[in-house]
C-alpha cells in the first residue's frame, strides 16, 4: 500500500508555508486574480500610453456633434463635437490617477496613524480612533461641497472626498492588524532591549501588517474611483474640458436616448476598473495571509 521507510526521517522543521515566500508568477493558480491583474494592467496601459496614440485630441471639436459610434469616430462624439475615444482614454487616466494618488497618500498617513495608535498606548489610541470616527461620520459630499466652495469645484474637491473616505478605513484596518502584533512576545523583547517606537514600527509592525495593507490599498483605490466617479457625475469633481469617467457618464446621461454609447461606454469602463482593482485586492489578500505563522 504505502511506501515503507527504514527509519524515521530526521528533519522535523515544519514546511515553510506562506510567511515569506512569494510565488514568482503572480497569482499562480488563481484565475480570477490573474484576470483582474490583466484587466488592471490593460487599463493602466491605456491610461498612460493612450494619449500618445493617434486617436485625436480629447478637447478639440471635430465639428461633428453627438455622432454615433463608428462612422469616422470609433466611439462617436459628444455634444460639443469632441471625439469620445480620446476623452474616455483621458477619463481613464484621470480617474485612475486621482484614485491611486490620493489612496497612496491616505495609505502613508493611515499606516503611520494606525501603527502609532496601536503602539502609543490607550490615550493616543483613543484619540486617533475617535478622530477617524469623526471623519468617517462626515457625509462625503458635504466635505466635497465644502472644498468646492473654498477651492471651487474641480479635481481638488474630488480628491478631498476620496481622501476622506479612504483614510479612516485605512487607519482602522492597519490598527486592527497592528494591535495583536504589538502584544506579541517579540515586540516586548525588542522594547526591553531598548528599541524606540520608530524602530518597532519599522522593523516589526510594518512588515507584519504589510499583507493587510496591500490588499486594502487595492480595495481603497476601487472605492476611490467610485467616489471620484460619483463626485464628477454630480458636477462637483472634475470639470470640462478635462474629463474623468464619472464626468463623462454625467454629461452623457443627458443624451442617453440619442447617443447611448456616450454614457454607457465610460460607465462600463469604470465598472471594469473597479472590478479589476477588487479582484486584485482579493487575490493579494489570499496570497499574503495576514495571520502570523503558527505551529502546526
Amino acid at each position: 500500500m504505502s511506501v515503507t521507510f527504514p527509519s524515521p526521517t530526521p528533519a522535523a522543521p515544519a514546511a515553510p508555508s506562506a510567511g515569506r515566500r512569494r510565488p514568482r508568477v503572480p497569482f499562480k493558480g488563481d484565475p480570477l486574480g490573474r484576470f483582474g491583474l490583466f484587466l488592471l494592467i490593460a487599463l493602466v496601459a491605456i491610461g498612460l500610453f493612450g494619449p500618445a496614440l493617434p486617436i485625436g485630441s480629447p478637447t478639440e471639436s471635430t465639428g461633428d456633434r453627438l455622432a454615433p459610434p463608428g462612422d469616422g469616430h470609433l466611439l462617436g462624439t459628444d455634444e460639443l463635437g469632441r471625439a469620445l475615444l480620446p476623452r474616455i482614454v483621458e477619463g481613464i487616466r484621470e480617474t485612475i490617477l486621482i484614485a491611486t494618488g490620493v489612496v497612496l497618500v491616505a495609505t502613508v498617513v493611515g499606516v503611520l496613524a494606525g501603527c502609532f495608535a496601536a503602539l502609543a498606548g490607550r490615550r493616543v489610541d483613543e484619540l486617533i480612533v475617535r478622530a477617524t470616527d469623526v471623519i468617517f461620520s462626515f457625509p462625503v459630499f458635504l466635505i466635497a461641497i465644502l472644498v468646492s466652495v473654498v477651492a471651487g469645484p474641480g479635481r481638488a474637491a474630488a480628491m478631498a472626498a476620496v481622501f476622506a473616505v479612504t483614510l479612516p478605513t485605512m487607519v482602522r484596518v492597519v490598527r486592527a492588524a497592528a494591535l495583536p502584533v504589538v502584544e506579541r512576545d517579540f515586540v516586548t523583547a525588542a522594547e526591553v532591549a531598548g528599541a524606540s517606537r520608530w524602530r518597532l514600527l519599522r522593523v516589526h509592525l510594518l512588515p507584519n501588517v504589510r499583507g493587510v495593507v496591500i490588499g486594502q490599498v487595492a480595495y481603497a483605490i476601487s472605492l476611490g474611483m467610485l467616489i471620484e466617479g460619483g463626485m464628477s457625475f454630480l458636477g462637483l469633481g472634475v470639470q470640462a474640458p478635462a474629463a474623468s469617467l464619472g464626468s463623462l457618464v454625467g454629461s452623457g446621461r443627458l443624451y442617453l436616448t440619442i447617443d447611448p454609447a456616450y454614457a454607457l461606454v465610460p460607465g462600463v469602463v469604470l465598472g471594469l476598473a473597479v472590478l479589476a482593482f477588487n479582484l486584485v485586492g482579493d487575490a493579494l489578500r489570499r496570497e499574503t495571509d495576514p495571520t502570523l505563522e503558527r505551529e502546526a
Binding site: G19, R20, R184, D185, F186, T188, A189, V192, A193, G194, V203, H204, P207, N208, L292, E293, R294, E295
Partner: peptide, 20 residues
C-alpha cells in the same frame, strides 16, 4: 541601561518575528 537586562517570554510561536 539597555543591553544590560533581557527577557525570555512565554509563547514560542510568538517569540520571534515571523518576518525576520
Amino acid at each position: 541601561q539597555r543591553g544590560r537586562f533581557a527577557v525570555v517570554l512565554q509563547h514560542p510561536q510568538w517569540s520571534l518575528d515571523p518576518r525576520l
